[in-house]
Design a protein around this nucleic acid. Structure first.
Length: 111
DNA sequence: AGATTGACTGCAT
DNA sequence: CATGCAGCCAATC
């Protein structure tokens, strides 16, 4: 029997699970994900994304996560430019203000 | 064991 | 519409 590790699935791991469920061509906000995870604040989602740099997890489409303004929130300019490029490859459209239209690309929860 | 870091949001001005 | 302030919590060094 396996002893269950004292370490339960880290909260970040749970957040990544939600992000991983975002279909291509769609985007979700930190608040949206936080609400899906449950007892979690949007801040935690952002922190979890930043932690991705520490754990290297290509399975997490962090690029599909943006802030409530429909804009990229990544601090790192290189990461932000990269995210925008990837999203465009996904088929997401940025307006002249570099903003995404949630009415068109906003992820409507899990299917 | 403690200090530091960090990709948000809502409300008020 | 832009800016500033406060609240939030976990992981990493």
């Amino acid at each position: 029997m396996a002893k269950n590790d004292s370490t339960q699935p880290p909260l970040y791991e749970r957040i990544y699970a939600i992000v991983r469920q975002i279909p291509p061509g769609k985007v979700a906000t930190y608040g949206q994900i936080a609400q899906m995870v449950g007892s979690c604040t949007p801040r935690m989602v952002g922190y979890a994304m930043a932690a991705l740099k520490h754990i290297d997890r290509p399975d997490v489409p962090w690029q599909r996560v943006i802030n409530r303004h429909g804009r990229i929130s990544i601090l790192d300019p290189f990461g932000g430019a990269l995210q925008r490029q990837i999203l465009e490859e996904e088929g997401v459209f940025f307006d002249n203000n570099d903003r995404i239209d949630f009415l068109t690309f906003g992820w409507v929860g899990a299917p």
